[in-house]
Design a protein around this nucleic acid. Structure first.
Lengths: 204, 204
DNA sequence: ATTATCTATAGATCTATAGATAATGC
DNA sequence: ATTATCTATAGATCTATAGATAATGC
């Protein structure tokens, strides 16, 4: 017999509903139904819709932040490899979580105060990652291997290229979908292109 | 005396409310209040919230589509200039309409059927624009001035780089805001960087 | 006569909770 | 004894409309 995990079921259902419809579009009744529990259970475990939502959003923001750190965090590789690997791993993460960036970006936009608590820790982690990369960029530039560039500029190039196609897929598909046979292949092509773009940007 | 334009006031207020909060977050009562009219007027002029919304969304989708065409449409310029000018004009358009892409992308995602009617015409216009650019790309590549590239790949690079910072600004600001003194300057820097990236991508 | 506007309210939907009942762990 | 669950419903909010009234254009 399965010892049913009501709280877990609610979280799973809530994640799905909130990611798909956002806070305003999500209905607690719909979450309860998907979780296979009665409506009152949401309030028993999470008090309010807002608190349940905060739990999901916090998880997702943290996941999105970590994805960048782990993708680019391997400091054993030589810089160019580290960047290529980073782009590739970050892109793979997005293929596993295609709706994540839109969800986070939207909810932060519609209620910025939700982001306040994370601002500082996010900023600190990102800076520490980028500081290491900046050193290596500077070293290679010194040797004349690459052009000099601010790591923040470069990282924003990378993230723009990687994330945008996922956020905008439904809108761009009619125009750019013809590039590939299917969605999967389309994204594989983008991954390769993004690496190419970034290498062109920094190589001399 | 101003001959009051109720319908126009409602449209203005609705645009603001929908762009800021999305369809689900927007309230007809709030739109009416902002328009300075009674609530029943919305229904008198537009029947339903849905119809009022469709009017706004259609306008915005069309505006976003046209922005790309007009930015890159100047076929008198030599190709590299045309691309630089295109990136720059498209970026300027986004600076004037920073919330537009997020709005469109979101609403299309949450109810894809809203996009169906435009899919074909959008795709046709885009293809005709890109066909012209592809010819010039091929010619320059033939001459060995640039590398060979599919215009769709290149345009998606451009649009990703240009649009993403606007969509994600509230999320990326804590990390990348330190690049510039203020928001305005931040975006000016991005515009220059995006041109640089694209030139690096195609130049030999 | 037609068009525009207002007041009042119906009707639907949604979140939240009260209070009773069943299950669980000492 | 405490924790989990259910039923029933309160209370708030939101969209939409009916019906009366005022303004406008022939």
């Amino acid at each position: 017999m399965k010892p049913k995990d009501t709280e877990g079921e609610i979280l799973r259902a809530a994640e799905q509903e909130f990611m798909l419809k956002g806070f305003d579009g999500a209905k607690t009744a719909s979450i309860a139904r998907a979780a296979g529990v009665t409506h009152a259970m949401l309030h028993y475990y999470f008090r309010t819709k807002e608190q349940l939502f905060d739990r999901i959003l916090t998880d997702k923001m943290s996941l999105m932040g970590r994805s960048v750190l782990t993708a680019f965090g391997d400091s054993r590789l030589p810089l160019l490899e580290r960047l290529k690997e980073g782009i590739s791993r970050h892109f793979d993460f997005l293929m596993e979580n295609p709706d994540l960036p839109r969800f986070v970006v939207n909810e932060v936009f519609s209620r910025p105060e939700r982001y306040e608590v994370m601002r500082e820790s996010i900023s600190r982690l990102a800076n520490s990652l980028m500081q290491g990369i900046q050193c290596e960029l500077d070293a290679l530039a010194e040797q004349g291997e690459i052009v000099a560039i601010d790591v923040r500029v470069l990282m924003l190039d990378i993230i723009s290229l990687n994330v945008f196609p996922f956020i905008a897929y439904p809108v761009i598909e009619p125009v750019f979908g013809s590039l590939a046979a299917d969605r999967q292949q389309f994204f594989e092509m983008r991954k390769a292109e993004n690496i190419e773009v970034i290498m062109c940007r920094i190589k001399k």
